[in-house]
Amino acid sequence: MSQHIVEFKNVSKKYPGREALHNVSFTLPRGKVIGLIGPNGSGKSTALKLMAGLLRPNAGQVLVNGEIAGRPTQHQHMAFLSDREELYPFYTIGETLAFYKSVYGDFDLAKAEDMLKFLQLAPDQKVGGLSKGNYGRLKMVLTISRRVPLLLLDEPLSGLDPMVRQTIIQSIISYFDPEQTILLSTHEVSEIEPMLDMAMLIFNGQLVALEDVETIRETHQQHLVGWMSTAVR
């Protein structure tokens, strides 16, 4: 088992006309909750999709759990929560769970059912008829119930009301396995700050900082939003 769950070696990613990430290198430790923060268009989603194997770097190497990202065995190493709506609308919640169980051998059905109760989702509801908040909760259930070392959450809180955001945050804390690494991108920095071990700040396609949140508080006497605005100035 490699020491780091994620390793970027001189990674660049270009889209037509624009470079999303420029020569970025870093490693992420195992068993931490890490917030990926930065303004819109700074490269957060690109970084997550490179780890998920959904994008290939133009230069450099992305390793997840010691293996190059994008291989067919990728799904053994990570689960990815997309910011898009991509579940089948004609399934019920219960059928969606069964479908996930059939696709992913590592899917923990008992945990998923437990989480449904915690989040007050009824298994017989149709996915197509779910409110935005319940859809967001369901996606969280499906991701956290995967027994994989890395969970990638792309904007799990965006567009949801404060009540829903709070239950989603609580469900993450209650149900994730401390041996897993969670990397989540978000704009709601102050809301997730108490649950983070580390913060990773990306700006203009560059990694600006990767630090322990408690260190930021102790040495800079600042919370994350303040630290973030000083760091990108």
Partner: peptide
């Protein structure tokens, strides 16, 4: 540890 984490909204390592 897990109960304290959920009650306070912080992560279990904290």
């Amino acid at each position: 540890v897990r109960e304290l984490a959920v009650q306070s909204g912080v992560n279990p390592n904290t």
